[in-house]
Amino acid sequence: MKKYVVWAGMTLGLLANASGAFAADNGPKMLTPHYTYNAKTIIAGAKLFATDCMACHSIKFMRYEFLTQDLGMSKADVHKYIMLPTGSEFKGTMVSAMPINMAHKWFGLPPPDLSQMVRYKSQDWVYTYLLSFYRDPQRPSGWNNYVFPNVAMPDVLAPYGGIVNEHGKVLRAGDESPQKFKEQVTDIVAFLRFVSDPSVVQRDDDGPWVLGLLVLFTIFAYFLKKEYWKDVK
C-alpha cells in the first residue's frame, strides 16, 4: 500500500508541475477580475453587453431564451433590457444588427463574434483589454490599446470610465467612479464567461448528484469485491 502512495504521489506531482507549466502564458502582465460568479453578476453583465457591445458584436451561439432557462431572467426582462426592439426572435440567436458589409466599411474587418472569446483569450485578457484603452490621435478611430496594439475598436465604454492618454493622464473623467467602472467591466467579463460555456449552470446543478451516485456505486462495488476476495488465499 505504501508503495502505491509513493507512486501516486510521484505521478500527481509530475502532473501538477506539468499542468502549471502547460498553462503558462507568455504575454504581457494581465489583470485578474475579482467577482462572485452567479446569476446576478451575469445578468448585470448581459444588460451592459446588450446596451454597449451588441450594436457591433454578435454572440451567435447564444439564444435569448437561454437567459431565462439558465439564469432565471423573466421573459419580460429579456425583452426590456436585452433584446433589440425589432427584428429579433426570443428563441433566435443573439446576433448584432450591424450588417457585415457596413462593418467592413467602418472597421476594415467585421467585429469578431464574442461567443467563445473568454475561452479563446481567457477572462483576464478580456478584462485587461477593456481597461487598457487610451487616446491616440494617430489612429483613425482615435483610440489605441496596450493589450491589443492598433486595435480597430473604439473605447465604447469611455463615457463610463473616462478617457486617458498614452501616459495614463486622465483627459476626461468618466460618469462612474473608477471602482464602479471596474465592477461594470467585471460584470461584462462574467457574462462573456457564461456565454463561452452556458453549460456551467446545468453542470453545477447535476454534478453533485452524479458524483454522489458514482461514489455510492463505488462503495457498494468495493464491499462486493472484498466479499468475493475472501475466497482468495
Binding site: F22, G207, T218, I219
Partner: peptide, 29 residues
C-alpha cells in the same frame, strides 16, 4: 474475482471522469 474488482475500478475511474466533466471540463485548457 476480477470482474467484481474491475467494477470497483470502473466506479473510481468514472467518478474521476465525471468530476473532470462537471467541474473542470477543459482541465486548465
Amino acid at each position: 474475482y476480477y470482474s467484481v474488482k474491475d467494477l470497483f475500478g470502473f466506479g473510481v475511474w468514472l467518478t474521476i471522469f465525471a468530476a473532470i466533466i462537471f467541474y473542470a471540463p477543459t482541465f486548465h485548457h
